[in-house]
Amino acid sequence: MNAQPTQSFVQPAKPPLERHTLSVVVDNEPGVLARVIGLFSGRGYNIDSLTVSETEHAAHVSRITIVTTGQATVIEQIKAQLSRMVPVHTVRDLTAEGGSLERELALVKVVGTGDQRNEALRLAQVFRADVIDANVDHFVFELTGKPAKVDQFIAIMGPLGLVEVCRTGIAAVSRGKRTD
């Protein structure tokens, strides 16, 4: 008995991680967001970005946009777990559907004087960021765009006196006329 050699539990080659944007329409009721977030923390799924807002007041529904990272099988589980929740109406995987539109807004505070300050303002103009507050030694920029653009802007501002960032998280819709 027990003649077989023991193998390790860890599967040798781990499947690659994928990043997916999920658009989830839920009842706009207290506790629903907690239930969705509880699913992610309780089952150890990642949340990279999360945005929530009421989308149709009359229909009493909200849209939760979640960006998550995981192996393909985990993403599939996440969608199944979300879909079976009682207050969840629909779950769409915008990444799998392809060609979705994703935007994010960031407020970026940069502190500095002299050349550094001028360089920050010049680059902000290149990125089409608006100045929404300024004094002689700081700027607050408002930037909208794809998450990658926001990432890049923040990285560039790093050495130029970046002190604070606030990002909204991703808002996403599919292209074309299809709705949920």
Partner: peptide, 8 residues
């Protein structure tokens, strides 16, 4: 009956 039981 529960899609989340599949491929879990």
């Amino acid at each position: 009956i529960d899609p989340s039981s599949i491929n879990k």
